[in-house]
Structure formats: C-alpha cells, structure tokens
Simulated scan of single mutants.
Amino acid sequence: MNGFEKRASLIKEKIKKTTLDMLRTSDPKRIRIADIAKRADVSQVTIYNYFGSKEALLQDVFKSFVDGAVRDFENYMAEKRTLKERIEYILFREKEAYRDFPPRLIKEMLIEDHELTRYIEELYKEKTIPLTVQMIQEGKDSGEISQDVSIESVLAMIRLYLSQYETILEMAEQSGDMDRFIKGMVHLFFYGVCGKS
C-alpha cells in the first residue's frame, strides 16, 4: 500500500468510526452527511467520493461491524475453550454489540436495505451457523452437552435467547448489575432453575 492509499484508508476508517459513534446516539434518518463531515473533520465531497451516499456509508459501517464480530467469534472459537465459556462469550459479545447497534436500529436498517439483509443472511448461513454447529458438536463430543439433546434443540435454545436479547438486556440494565444478571442467564441456559452450580 503506497502513501496515498494508506492516507485514503485512514480517512475512510475515520469517517466510518465517526458514523458508528453517531449511530450510538442518533437515528440514522437524522444523521446528515454534513454532520458526519463536520465531526470527522473532512469535507462532504470526501465522504461522497469514498462512499457515494449516506446509505452506502451506513451499509459499509454496519457490514464492517458485523464482519469484525464474526472474525472475533472465529478467533475465539479457534482457542481451546469450554462450551460454557463460548456461550458466555456469545452472550457478553451481544451485550457489547447492543451498545453499538441496538436491536431497534438493526431492524430499522435491515427493513430499509434489502442488500444488507441478504448480506447478513448469507453471513449467518455461511459462517455463524457452521461455527455454532461446530461448537455444539464439540460440546457433545466432550460430554458438556448430553447425547440426548440434538444439535437442532441447542440451536433452537440459542435462537430463543437471542430473539429476546433486547428484553433480556433491558432487564439486565434495570437489575443494577448487568454482568451478574447475564451470568445468571448463562446458568439458566446450562442448568435450568434447579440444576447444578
């Protein structure tokens, strides 16, 4: 990468980081290119030259965020971890993701952008599901998951948790001790109400 390409890459990343920071506090519809440019200390023309439109910029920011989360998950899965540690990682990572992209914002972005929806669905099918199935199979092989429980059942349980994650996180925030609340949810996931500690 030559000096020009390096500078261009740094400017693009600065614009994307600024946009992500703004998405944490603002509705995407209210964010204007002029606001992003001002906060990133670049011209509006620079943003249009690199991204083409506000919609393309938002899409790029969200894709980068999701790609990074999947990469982190792949790296974490490559390390020797127990199933419980991996499930905790998924739930705690969701907590962090919730801060950057609340479920309301994700739904809004996916409803309005069919290309982004397709991208997320492909990523889910090609990367997330195979990694999760691998995790479950390794849990079965190590005896952490009962042989009586099917992979489909564990996937269904994970989906149930994640589909209600917005509600779970709201309850966790209201509890006053978010980490303790989520640890309790992990315990319930593995052992139920009366299971072993």
Rank of each mutant, 00 (worst) to 15 (best):
M1E: 07
R7N: 03
A8Q: 12
A8Y: 04
L10H: 06
K16A: 06
T18Y: 04
L20P: 06
L20M: 15
L20I: 14
M22Y: 02
L23N: 07
R24N: 13
T25V: 11
S26I: 02
K29Q: 13
R30T: 11
D35I: 02
I36V: 11
A37P: 01
A37Y: 01
R39M: 12
A40F: 05
S53V: 11
K54G: 12
E55C: 03
F62Q: 02
S64M: 09
F65A: 13
D67P: 04
V70W: 04
R71Y: 05
F73N: 00
E74D: 11
N75F: 03
Y76A: 06
Y76N: 05
K80D: 01
L83R: 08
K84C: 03
R86L: 15
E88Y: 02
E88M: 01
Y89R: 02
I90K: 05
R93D: 11
A97H: 07
A97D: 11
D100S: 15
D100A: 15
D100W: 15
F101I: 09
P102C: 04
L110P: 06
L110G: 10
L110M: 14
D113L: 05
H114N: 11
T117D: 14
E121V: 15
E121A: 14
T128W: 14
P130R: 05
Q134G: 06
I136G: 02
I136L: 06
Q137D: 06
Q137P: 03
G139H: 02
S142L: 15
I145R: 01
S146A: 15
Q147N: 12
Q147M: 11
Q147V: 10
V149Y: 01
E152F: 00
L155N: 07
M157T: 13
I158A: 08
R159D: 13
L162Q: 04
S163C: 11
Q164G: 08
Q164M: 09
Q164W: 02
Y165L: 08
E166S: 15
E166F: 10
T167Q: 07
T167Y: 01
E170A: 09
M171S: 08
E173M: 08
E173F: 12
D177K: 09
R180D: 04
F181N: 04
F181G: 06
I182S: 08
K183D: 01
G184L: 07
M185C: 11
M185F: 09
V186A: 07
H187C: 02
F189N: 05
Y191H: 14
G192T: 10
G195R: 09
K196I: 14
